[in-house]
């Protein structure tokens, strides 16, 4: 091996890809259920209780829940995304959401859909979520 060090790019920045500010804001997201009523509000409430497995922040404040709708026959439709496609906690989170929502009085069935568009970005995190993440030690 040569002992010479390669020329370094003067504009290079270390770990350029950990810039968590990337991503475009999407209208209607984050969805927080603040205007929800009845059963849907109850569903949002239990979703708020579920935290990301790596950080002490609610999955709702993290912006993972894109929508909740409960139909007249008691089927709760939940649209959820994940921050990363290779998330090793995918099955766990899906299980937690399905279990929590199924426990809501009046919900007969849970239809959980994983959605990927628009792709999650830091813009989807609520202000409270950002506070929680800062508290945890992330600089966002």
């Amino acid at each position: 091996m040569s002992s010479e060090t390669p020329d370094t790019d003067p504009d290079a920045t270390p770990c350029a890809y950990t810039d968590y500010r990337e991503g475009e804001a999407v209208e209607e997201l984050p969805a927080t259920g603040e205007d929800a009523t009845g059963l849907e509000a109850d569903v949002w409430e239990v979703l708020y209780e579920i935290e990301d497995p790596e950080m002490p922040v609610s999955i709702v404040d993290l912006g993972l829940i894109y929508g909740v709708a409960v139909s007249d026959d008691g089927v709760a439709h939940v649209d959820m995304t994940l921050t990363y496609s290779g998330c090793p906690a995918r099955d766990m989170l899906e299980g937690q959401v399905e279990e929590a929502v199924a426990d809501v009085d009046g919900v007969e069935e849970v239809d959980l859909q994983l959605v990927w568009s628009p792709g999650w970005s830091i813009e989807m995190v609520t202000e409270r979520g950002k506070d929680d993440l800062r508290e945890f030690g992330l600089s966002i």
Binding site: Y17, Y84, S85, G86, V115, W116, S117, P118, G119
Partner: peptide
């Protein structure tokens, strides 16, 4: 079509 953007955002580097 829905998931291409997510994959591209992770493939960039």
């Amino acid at each position: 079509a829905d998931r291409v953007g997510k994959i591209q955002s992770e493939e960039g580097y």
